[in-house]
Write a protein that binds this DNA or RNA. Structure first.
Length: 329
DNA sequence: CGGCTTTGACCAGCGC
DNA sequence: GCGCTGGTCAAAGCCG
């Protein structure tokens, strides 16, 4: 168990807020600076961050923007999503979107979240994080093995387990565990085609050259996979310097400046707690962010709770790209 | 050659 | 106490 990258002891005992804060105290990258333009925030916020509750002067170690997403933050963001989905209908989408707030299932102590993902034969998925597989086990009463992954980001202690559903062959069950709540990451960043707040990522073919993915020869999924990889491939490639949407924002500030405050680990990957505050403070962005093309069921799994609260929506496309899942397939 | 995956072994928790 | 089960370790192999 005692791996070299094992987090400090207090990770296991401190509260989520404390842990997040501790992380952010020293290493929080500063993506956004007042006075700069942030086109990725959308037209409503073009101009300066002062319009979105940013102090006039930000010490780079000041964490006003990144006090850390609590579960309430995420819940709030998802709640906003529910409202925002109404905009989707206004845009002409006939989908019936159902977003029921997670009211009971969230468990601060355990921080375990389970995603049921319709993979529809797509063997490759990506939630924007790079995971290192550290184990695989056959599970009793399940024909499919379970794979264990750790987040390779040294700032992050998150883990996830991935297994195929025994009931539905095309459904993957991904259980996220850990401080950084990776489960929600993809919900915020997955919808690049309408992510007006991350325009640089909307034009990946110009900004990000997409390598052909030999692991995904399925041309039938090409469009979806393009969206997927262009959003997240940089996160998975340690040598790239645009780890995620938020970091792309940092890039807008000037790579040197941002990177010098990021630390190399963040160059490789953005963390959810780094971005959630943005969504919480900018709920309008979620209207775009959540009109994505996933079929997703999210449920928390507190050990002592029988409730299965969920966040779910039923978009047209069955494809989902959460998790580096090929290990179990 | 370094990083990643695979896979059997080991360990801890839990129920009986 | 014992066995079962899930989670993790770590050596070996693979791959780019």
């Amino acid at each position: 168990m005692a791996a070299a990258e094992e987090p400090p002891a207090n990770w296991a005992s401190g509260s989520e807020d404390e842990l997040v804060r501790e992380l952010l105290d020293d290493e929080t990258p500063l993506f956004l600076l007042p006075g700069d333009d942030y086109p990725f925030l959308g037209s409503e916020y073009s101009g300066s961050l002062s319009t979105i509750d940013v102090p006039p002067a930000i010490n780079r170690s000041t964490l006003n923007l990144y006090s850390g997403p609590t579960l309430e933050d995420i819940e709030s963001a998802l709640s906003t999503t529910k409202q925002s989905l109404g905009l989707t209908e206004e845009l002409g989408t006939s989908r019936t979107s159902t977003v029921s707030l997670i009211e009971k299932g969230f468990n601060k102590v355990d921080n375990k979240y389970t995603l049921k993902i319709k993979s529809s034969g797509s063997t490759m998925a990506d939630d924007g994080y790079k995971w290192r597989k550290y184990g695989q086990k056959s599970i009793k009463n399940s024909p499919n093995p379970r794979s264990y992954y750790r987040c390779t980001n040294p700032r992050c202690s998150a883990k996830k387990q991935v297994e195929k559903s025994k009931d539905e062959a095309d459904t993957l069950i991904v259980t996220y565990e850990g401080l950084h709540l990776h489960f929600a990451y993809s919900h915020f960043l997955r919808s690049r085609p309408v992510m007006s707040f991350v325009p640089e990522l909307i034009q990946p073919k110009k900004r990000l050259k997409l390598p052909s993915d030999p692991a995904n020869p399925d041309q039938g999924h090409q469009e979806v996979l393009q969206i997927t990889t262009s959003t997240t491939s940089t996160c998975r490639d340690d040598h790239e310097e645009e780890p995620a949407a938020v970091v792309a924002g940092a890039g807008e500030l000037g790579a040197e400046d941002a990177v010098s405050n990021m630390g190399t680990s963040f160059q490789a990957q953005g963390l959810l707690e780094d971005i959630v505050p943005l969504f919480v403070r900018n709920p309008l962005n979620l209207s775009a962010a959540l009109s994505n093309n996933e079929t997703c069921l999210l449920s928390s799994s507190p050990p002592s709770s029988s409730s299965t609260s969920s966040v779910c929506w039923s978009p047209p496309s069955p494809y989902v790209d959460v998790g580096i899942l090929s290990g179990i397939l």
